[in-house]
Computed example of a mutant assay.
Amino acid sequence: MGAMTATVSTADQGGLVVVDGSSPSAPAHDPRLKSLTTVLADTTAKIQQGRSAGARVWPTGFDALDTALAGGLRSGELILMGGPQGLGKTTMALQMLRRAIVTGTRPAIFFSYEHDAHAVLERLIAIEAADLGGSEALTLNTIRQVFESRHTRATSLEEQFANTRGGAHAVRALARYSDRLHIHASSGMHTGIDQIRAAVQAVAEEHGQAPFVLVDYLQKVPVPGAGLGDEERITHVVEQLKDIALTVESPVLAIVAAEKASLVAGKRMRVHDLRGSSALAYEADVVFILNDKYDIVARHHLMYHLDMAERFRQWVVLTIEKNRGGIDKVELEFQKRFEQGRFEREGRIVQEQLIEERIFVD
């Protein structure tokens, strides 16, 4: 009689599948599956090689924030940054990316769905110039005027900025890491998760090191398949970005948009105000929310200190809403320098009382 063919369900045999009446076959090799023995061996090897056995830390460059995060962002983390429009989310994220690559030899990749590569270059020149010259350094408007000028005798970018405050220095500074910073002109039609993953892996292979990843912004990443709702699309994207962070062992920083109903002046934005908030809050390791300090400071600070009102407008409050690996509910403030496309790096803990919503006092 021929061999009996039998199929046994996982429930019948404790999770084993028997085919053709034979014993269960060995599972295919899964590179993500490791015994604790292998983990111990890998960790020991890192120690013997003089490498860090723990997560790799990437400083943000914002002193108060790095202190709160015990050094900075960590490899394998998905970090989200949300807030109202026009409050500098891209500005702050770009400063973090720049800091991540100037402090070491690691690369970075910026998936820009909002700005072209030249606009990113302008912002980086402004940041570098301010790093040397502070608030007296050239502004974004000056940088744009220099680029738009015609019939100059300059034969290089450095020469073109020679007569500006800090411009030539900024160009030289950029040259020191320009080969490690990759700008991806991303498209809301064509740059999906597969393209992001492939680009990240290509940069990692080119440099032999995991890159810092910035996505601006998460809700613009397209997802194939008709009929998916907004929540489903965002859930897919955030899950896949988290997987990229774990696989490549990089921090992935993604800017996220808010629900339109939450974009109300004088109302404090929270995690639940972000588009796709349930998936975002669950998958993310760290969540930053930016708010304008003037919009959320308590009324009595305006009524009895009218001279402070304009000063409050010059500050943004960054709240660590979630921090899976450390402390959260920390409220820090950083001064805006938007004319230079940046924030001051030295921040501080907010001393004033903050509220969820207030009536304007102008």
Rank of each mutant, 00 (worst) to 15 (best):
Y113W: 02
A281L: 04
E122F: 08
V287F: 04
G71E: 15
G192R: 02
L354Q: 10
G14W: 01
A11T: 08
I101Q: 09
D243P: 00
F147M: 11
A108C: 06
S186K: 03
D307P: 03
E231S: 09
G86W: 09
H151R: 14
Q219Y: 04
T235Q: 11
D194S: 15
S278T: 11
V248D: 04
H151V: 03
L241E: 00
R324V: 13
A129N: 10
S75G: 15
G61F: 09
Q195D: 14
V317L: 09
G14Y: 05
D30G: 06
P251M: 14
H301D: 14
A226N: 02
V271R: 05
A119M: 10
A162C: 07
V350W: 05
E206I: 03
I143C: 07
S112E: 06
L241T: 00
G50C: 06
A100L: 13
L174V: 08
R176H: 14
Q209S: 13
A254N: 01
V17K: 02
G276R: 02
L36Q: 10
L138W: 08
T37N: 12
V213F: 02
H115S: 11
A245Q: 04
L274E: 00
T43D: 01
R176E: 15
P222K: 01
L124S: 03
L140H: 07
S75T: 13
H190G: 03
A41D: 07
G276N: 03
L97Q: 07
G82I: 02
K242M: 02
T60R: 06
I183P: 01
A281G: 15
A309D: 06
V57Q: 06
D362F: 11
I47M: 08
F288Q: 02
V286Q: 08
L132S: 10
I127S: 07
T235A: 14
V361H: 12
D328E: 15
S52E: 15
G61I: 07
E114R: 03
G14F: 05
R337T: 06
R51D: 12
D285G: 12
E114L: 11
F343P: 03
L332M: 07
L87M: 12
G2C: 00
S250E: 06
Q335D: 04
K46W: 01
D292P: 01
I255R: 00
H300I: 03
V39W: 07
H184A: 15
L87S: 09
F147G: 02
H190E: 10
T155R: 15
V171K: 02
D362G: 10
T164N: 11
D362T: 05
R150P: 00
L241V: 00
Y217A: 01
V237C: 05
R324Y: 12
D307T: 12
P24T: 06
G50L: 06
D243K: 13
T152S: 13
M303F: 04
D131A: 15
R345A: 12
D216I: 08
R153L: 12
A284I: 04
R106W: 09
F288R: 03
